[in-house]
Amino acid sequence: MKFGICTSNFDKADLLKDLGYDYLEFSLAGVMSMTDIQFKDLLNSSERSPLKVEAFNSFVRTLKVVGDGVDWVALKDYVKAAMERANALGGKIVVFGSAGARNVPEGYPREKAWNQIADFLRMAGDEAAKYGIYIAIENLNKNESNILNTVEEGLNMVKSVGHSNVKVLADYYHMAVENEGFDAIIKADSNLVHTHIASGTNRTYPSEKDKDRYDLFFDALKDINYNGRVSIEARLTDESDYANAIKVLKRYV
């Protein structure tokens, strides 16, 4: 397995590399908000960095995927440009969490919302496939999203979409909040292409003091021979979190 950090820049890349991290995960919406000049500077920074950006979260931030006012042309243009930039930085995974884009408006038909998300993911899958990128559907707990709250629900969406480049993600924190069993990971099997992790109680970096069952999480990953990426997506309390977290997580692999 490879371990990474969700961050917004390359500032700590040397430190993280020395500690044993393998890659970085950036916000794709953040990258897309950059001007061409700013993005060129980011590419230059990437070339100098000992860690590369292999995954992206925050796929869609301002556009809507669900609802009556979906601008399909704008969505397609955005996704096309987003995949181009993700590929230029070396990305292999784009996470579809994007609660604000996918949340179902009050009173809106859920079946219609489900189909809109599926249509969006097929289109995104087509664009991602051009670069060998996978779209990973993120399970977000009900406090953050009103649809696709579990890994199993994400897997159902994968089946609805039916695209080879649209798979599922397992986020430990959201699984803990939703009290979802880790057997969902085993059900996902080869459809699982990415993972996120943080303490299930306060979303901080994993530590020795946690009462979380990281062992069960990693046991499930081992059961399906998962050899992909594990990104820490958590609230940083102190820079020492970086070192402590990687020590904790590497015990399980």
Rank of each mutant, 00 (worst) to 15 (best):
G162I: 05
A128V: 11
V230E: 00
L140T: 11
E152Y: 14
N143S: 08
K2Y: 10
G125C: 04
A188L: 09
G20S: 11
G91H: 02
A124Q: 06
N115E: 07
I37R: 10
D36T: 15
P50K: 03
G107D: 10
D210F: 04
D36P: 05
R102S: 06
E47L: 15
K52Y: 04
V79F: 01
A86G: 14
D36V: 04
K130N: 11
W72V: 09
D183P: 06
P50H: 07
N156L: 07
A81K: 12
I197Y: 01
P105S: 05
D22E: 09
L63A: 03
L42C: 15
S98A: 15
A243W: 01
N165F: 13
M32W: 13
N143I: 03
D18C: 07
L63N: 14
W72N: 08
H194V: 01
N225S: 13
I224V: 13
A234M: 08
K222Y: 03
Y242F: 10
W114R: 11
I5R: 04
V60H: 05
E178K: 02
D189H: 06
D18S: 15
G97K: 00
E178Y: 02
R61K: 15
Y226G: 00
N57R: 06
Y21H: 08
E208T: 12
V66P: 00
A82I: 15
A113Y: 15
A129W: 03
G107R: 08
Y21C: 07
I147L: 14
F96G: 00
L89H: 10
A188N: 00
S240P: 12
E106L: 09
E54Y: 12
M157R: 02
Y242G: 07
A99P: 05
S160W: 12
E208M: 07
L75E: 12
K17E: 10
E144R: 08
T150D: 05
T150P: 07
G162C: 04
P206I: 13
M1W: 09
E144F: 08
G181T: 10
Y173V: 06
G181I: 08
T62R: 13
I186W: 02
Y108R: 05
A13I: 03
E144D: 15
R110D: 07
D219S: 14
V151D: 02
A129R: 15
S49R: 04
Y78T: 09
A74G: 10
F217V: 05
N141Q: 12
A129Q: 06
E84W: 06
F217W: 06
Q116K: 11
E106F: 14
N139R: 01
